[in-house]
């Protein structure tokens, strides 16, 4: 299966920044209580709060908000953090469109029937090339449709 994903930096920063601050406060308290507050090592020790905070933030980000889309020629799976947000088979869908949300972010929408029930693939949160991926999906839907209408012809091709 191929994978689409992207590190969403603003979300990672928003998760990490409180922990960077808390780590800096903790290190500073430890420095003061150890009598190292006037030491030249102080700045170096305080800077350790960045990797520490980022590591905690990254763990939370990966568990809760990191989006991954796994797909092959038959099916797709959308994961958000550790959760399986949605999955489906291309053959169950009839139409695909590019949809913009209120912030202008472009995602893919798969329709089971024109204007009916749909599933969204959050492409804006991955490194996918929008139009190319849409064309790929459209091809999958057309092939699935052709398979349903004429299974022998598709097998022959």
């Amino acid at each position: 299966m191929e994978k689409l994903s992207k590190l969403q930096l603003p979300i990672l920063v928003s998760y990490s920044s409180p922990f960077v601050l808390l780590s800096a406060l903790g290190i500073n308290t430890w420095l003061v209580s150890s009598g190292l507050s006037a030491s030249p090592l102080r700045l170096i020790l305080l800077s350790a709060s960045f990797p520490l905070g980022l590591a905690i933030g990254r763990t939370i980000y990966l568990r809760r908000s990191h989006v991954e889309i796994l797909f092959d020629n038959d099916a797709f799976y959308v994961f958000k953090g550790k959760r399986d947000k949605s999955h489906g088979q291309w053959k169950n869908y009839k139409m695909v469109s590019i949809i913009l949300d209120q912030f202008g972010r472009a995602d893919l929408r798969l329709y089971k029937s024109p204007g009916g029930e749909h599933t969204d693939l959050p492409l804006s949160k991955t490194n996918a090339r929008l139009q190319e991926f849409r064309d790929y999906v459209q091809k999958r839907l057309l092939l699935a449709k052709a398979e349903v209408s004429s299974p022998q012809a598709v097998e022959a091709s």
Binding site: M95, S97, I98, I99, L100, G104, A106, R109, L130
Partner: peptide, 15 residues
């Protein structure tokens, strides 16, 4: 998709 038509219309879905 990048909003070129925005002065006239807000196009939000492309098929």
């Amino acid at each position: 998709i990048n909003g070129r038509a925005r002065w006239v219309a807000d196009l939000s879905e492309f098929i």
